[in-house]
């Protein structure tokens, strides 16, 4: 039975979802490659749809691989999502503050306002000639944003799991 374009699409769609769920597995790419070979070989016996269905949901399969490691692993992808959400939330608040400030200046008849945050001066201008926000950048501001990303990233990734024992050591200790 040869692999059709449709079969390839079904296989690759499954493997894409599986790869996403496997990102926290150490060196997961060889596992995905091996699964691709296995799926293609199995499909020659039972068809691609059946071969894919027999694997179950990609996330459940990825969880099974992770659980076979015998130890919890850091969730780097989850950490990156948490970090990005935190930076996004702070950026959203900063933009909302900027728009609100410009609007207030406009309501008060226009002009310029300076605010200093962590050594960086931000100038808000709203008059007949210009509507602008300009800001300088200091290392403190960069450090602030780095913290805003890093702290949720490390917590979301459960970084302490990186220091748990190796799978083999954990199993040996368990035996």
């Amino acid at each position: 039975m040869s692999t059709t374009v449709r079969d390839t699409l079904v296989r690759e769609r499954y493997l894409l979802r599986f790869s996403w769920a496997m990102q926290d597995y150490p060196r997961y790419k060889p596992v995905v490659r091996e699964l691709r070979t296995e799926l293609t070989a199995t499909a020659s016996e039972v068809g691609m749809r059946q071969a894919v269905a027999d694997l179950g949901h990609p996330r459940v399969l990825a969880d099974a691989y992770l659980s076979e490691l015998g130890r919890p692993v850091p969730r780097w992808t989850t950490g990156a999502v948490w970090g990005a959400l935190a930076v996004g939330a702070v950026a959203y608040l900063a933009i909302a503050y900027g728009i609100g400030t410009l609007d207030t200046i406009g309501q008060m008849g226009g002009g310029t306002l300076e605010r200093v945050f962590l050594g960086a001066t931000t100038v808000f201008t709203n008059d007949d000639d210009a509507l602008s926000v300009s800001s300088s950048l200091t290392w403190q501001v960069l450090a602030f944003y780095a913290c805003v990303f890093t702290v949720p990233f490390l917590l979301g990734a459960r970084v302490w799991r990186a220091w748990s024992g190796t799978p083999t050591a954990a199993r040996a200790a368990h035996a």
């Binding site: 071969a51 027999d54 099974a64 076979e68 490691l69």
Partner: peptide, 16 residues
């Protein structure tokens, strides 16, 4: 038993 239950076990046995 599904293939999805077996493959992770094969992977682990080979790794060990």
């Amino acid at each position: 038993l599904s293939a999805g239950t077996l493959y992770p076990v094969l992977n682990r046995l080979e790794r060990d």
